[in-house]
Design a protein around this nucleic acid. Sequence first.
DNA 1: CCAGTTTTCTAGCATCGCTAGGATTGCTAG
DNA 2: CTAGCAATCCTAGCGATGCTAGAAAACTGG
Lengths: 188, 188
Amino acid sequence: MTQRQRRARDRTERGRRIVAAARELAEAEGWDAVTTRRLAALIEYSQPVLYSHFPGGKDAIMTAAALEGFAELAVALAAARDAGIEGVARAYVDFAEAKPALYDAMFTLASELRFAQDDTPEVMKANFTELLAVIEPVAGKQDPGVLTEVFWSTLHGLVTLDRGRRLSPENRAGRLALVVARFGARAD
Amino acid sequence: MTQRQRRARDRTERGRRIVAAARELAEAEGWDAVTTRRLAALIEYSQPVLYSHFPGGKDAIMTAAALEGFAELAVALAAARDAGIEGVARAYVDFAEAKPALYDAMFTLASELRFAQDDTPEVMKANFTELLAVIEPVAGKQDPGVLTEVFWSTLHGLVTLDRGRRLSPENRAGRLALVVARFGARAD
DNA sequence: CCAGTTTTCTAGCATCGCTAGGATTGCTAG
DNA sequence: CTAGCAATCCTAGCGATGCTAGAAAACTGG
């Protein structure tokens, strides 16, 4: 019976290696470079093995990577909670800059992951909760949940537009300061 | 000589038809469905004709569509200028909702188009100028340009996250109201 | 050692963006 | 009017993609 356990362990380990290889390759050369053939070569197996782990194919692998990303982002945001809005905003932007491909998988690609619904994974809700924690004190009479959505949208917009070279690079620090200024004040 | 002119006219007309067909197909079935073969079939020519118009291939066609989009968005924003921040914000969001594929081409795909640079097309700068016009009065001591970048990021984030089903649908109106509340107040 | 099950690989399909080379068309000069 | 030239267009094909069916291999329990 232990053999069966070992085989199962090897299998899940291999699944992890697939996602890890996909993430590495994506960060290095972008998601377009993450092909099933290259992925198979990296884990030293043939293509169909990927589909035994992720029946959904490449999309499912990206989704798995995205879920890892949500967990990591939640940790980063929680660590910055004491630093308030500024700390959380900076942590969010830093995360997106450090792992751009992963961020893409989480928010731009992988459209099957839905937020704000019953079947939304817990790790995804955790991120929203972290943002809510720092926004709630400054909400005043405004709805904290809605304000958090707007705050989140601002951070997401900053990240994506900045990466697409659509914002002036020299204003990066200034933008973050203005975000804090506009969202940090209590509205009543 | 008039024959030559007519041929040139037919040619540019055909170029327009290519972009128009691409836009229609993209809005109907998404950019993934816009293949060079389907595009060629729609304009009733063979594939290589596309490349004589757009040597850059599919990317160049998407870029051409994006440039049309920038022009149209600038018009929509200018028309809403008198309605202030709320009007412009609503016009922006409405545009993105009405032409989602075009919006994608403008901001998510087509990464070769850069903003805030010397070689940035005039139509793209026009959009920023329109946003700046309504933000400037409320900037106070804050830098108008930087504040406009943040405002724009918020709108962009709202649009993209909302479309990815990542925000709760029932809060749509509330979010826009909060954007106006947070950006409409003069900061000094 | 031998069946039977599970796992893995080889080979291939349809489709993608893109391009080379030949065929067809239209223009021009004699 | 026609021969030759130039521009235009299409057929056919290349390499690569995601994905899958069916054969081969390995491991299992008796």
